[in-house]
Amino acid sequence: MEKEKLFEKLKEKHPQTILGSADRFGALEIQVDRNAIADVVRTLRDDAELAFNVLVDLVSIDYSAYPGWTGERFGLAYLFKSLTLGHRAQLKVAVPEGEPVVPTLSGLYANSDWLEREAYDQMGIRFTRHPNLKRILNHHEFVGHPLRKDYPITKRQWLSANESLMDEMEVRLKEKGYE
């Protein structure tokens, strides 16, 4: 589908929550209200004319050091691809510093679990109703979120104990019917 048509269609379905769009080197970025992201993504995935069945990536950005930036501190870019129709889409949500909370995409895409954990770990954005919002790349004793612009690149931390993983295992065993 043409990117302009895609925008029109989403705007028609979600008139309140589609906020605008921007050109990203040929790709169209569609800006979405953060509280409605799960609804919009559901439309993207389930509408037969859109059929975005792959969540390609989730990118978190801290704009606090961006020259001349006036918007909210954080941004999240969601990248989608449709394997059946071949087109791509790009959504962006603005996330305020005081309340860096966004609804999860868990249940829509299987890989959103780890992608959202990465955004939480690296940037400190929390995802409501995420089943297992733990650190993923950094050690579990790590303090702070390293990709925030106010985290000094030379800072070192002492990390000692390894993780037992039994908290995740207990959940998994319960799903498998073990008591």
Binding site: R135, H139, E168, R172, Y178
Partner: peptide, 30 residues
């Protein structure tokens, strides 16, 4: 790392952990 729960020789549940080679590529680029 994968933590596996074994019943006999069968893995009945597993959880994985990554990040052991994390070296901050994305932070370094900045």
């Amino acid at each position: 790392r994968a933590l596996c729960a074994l019943d006999g020789e069968t893995i009945v549940a597993a959880v994985t952990e990554m990040g052991y080679l994390h070296r901050g590529f994305e932070k370094d680029t900045e």
